[in-house]
Design a protein around this nucleic acid. Sequence first.
DNA 1: CATTATGTTCTCAAAATGTTCTCATTCTGA
DNA 2: TCAGAATGAGAACATTTTGAGAACATAATG
Lengths: 204, 204
Amino acid sequence: MNASQQLTDKQRLTLDFIERYIATHTVSPKLQEIAEGIGIRSRGVAHRYIQALTDTGFIETDSGKHRGIRLLKPNPYRDESTLPLLGKIAAGKPIEAIPGEDQLDLRDFFGRNNFAVRVQGDSMIEAGIMDGDTVIIEFRETANDGDIVVALIDETETTLKRFKRSHRGRYIKLIPANKDMEEMIYEASRVRIQGVLIGQLRKY
Amino acid sequence: MNASQQLTDKQRLTLDFIERYIATHTVSPKLQEIAEGIGIRSRGVAHRYIQALTDTGFIETDSGKHRGIRLLKPNPYRDESTLPLLGKIAAGKPIEAIPGEDQLDLRDFFGRNNFAVRVQGDSMIEAGIMDGDTVIIEFRETANDGDIVVALIDETETTLKRFKRSHRGRYIKLIPANKDMEEMIYEASRVRIQGVLIGQLRKY
DNA sequence: CATTATGTTCTCAAAATGTTCTCATTCTGA
DNA sequence: TCAGAATGAGAACATTTTGAGAACATAATG
């Protein structure tokens, strides 16, 4: 009734389903499909949710017409820091989420001690890190063997390499992931760890 | 009772939980969830804390309604959608930002028509997409030659490949980025585009 | 036009959630 | 030590939310 009302759980689920359906099919779903999509059997109940979403101004309908739902405003309940994480995307059917893990949470990338670095060069290409990628680094001064680190050499040059101690820790190896390049070895005192790789992203 | 009263430990815990929950879910938690969140079993006890927080003016509730809690006092606002984007990280010195682009904004990844898919297999490895990576897909039904797409073949099988039209659009090539695998060619009617790759991320 | 599918409205319940209580137990400061 | 505060469990009840399905009206279809 009241346009300022909050949506109930099922009403939000319904809105979410309709948005996804329209995104994948370009037309709106029918009541039967909505019912199945949100896990119930009754068209009447599905219609009740449509009515609620209409009353709250999220959608409007061509009354009586088949597939007559239109979205009116963006869904404010969509969590801006997570994305649906999908397993299979089959036709028509509601999208199949990965069991036990249906939301991807990107806040892992946004911790207070994290920063991003744009990667230059191909030295880590065999680790799947390509020129132009952005890597997420956690500020740290120590690393474990095998970590990929941002290392500062001789207080001047910064590089992204795999980290490994050598000679009981007196030396440090910085190992590229590119068979055309050679690993480098430095006295431990010349190398300073700036941070450790915790994530990577790429934008197309 | 008294609005100037200090909060007890559990009341503070409850308030923290509610703030975090709302930040994560956009809607308020129900009593059962609050109880579990602060480590107790009784909804009644959880409600007692809600009552105390209401009396002290931190929250208000839509009496009776499910998920009817609203925060009243401002909670520290954190912008979690950007990260500092750094060029060089030199010792001691304040970190050197990339000129003209000093914040990485991940909101591109969170559009309402985007979703995430966990990648299985090595078919796109030469494009830097490895087994276990997560790719961000924008819902779309059309693609341009060269796009990497999620394609549904024969309404059953879903795959991530590079898209290319062939024979004036009567056929569609799906091209892996792996020299050990061969490209596949289908009649256009057998292939349905589910979305186009717009980003990729990996967590270490 | 006849038939089927779909949208709409309705009633009857069941399940989930919020609210209020009582009864204990633990903690804290005078 | 003792009284009061804080905490926890859970029963009992009221209200909200959810679900099924019948009945009817209208739209879509051939």
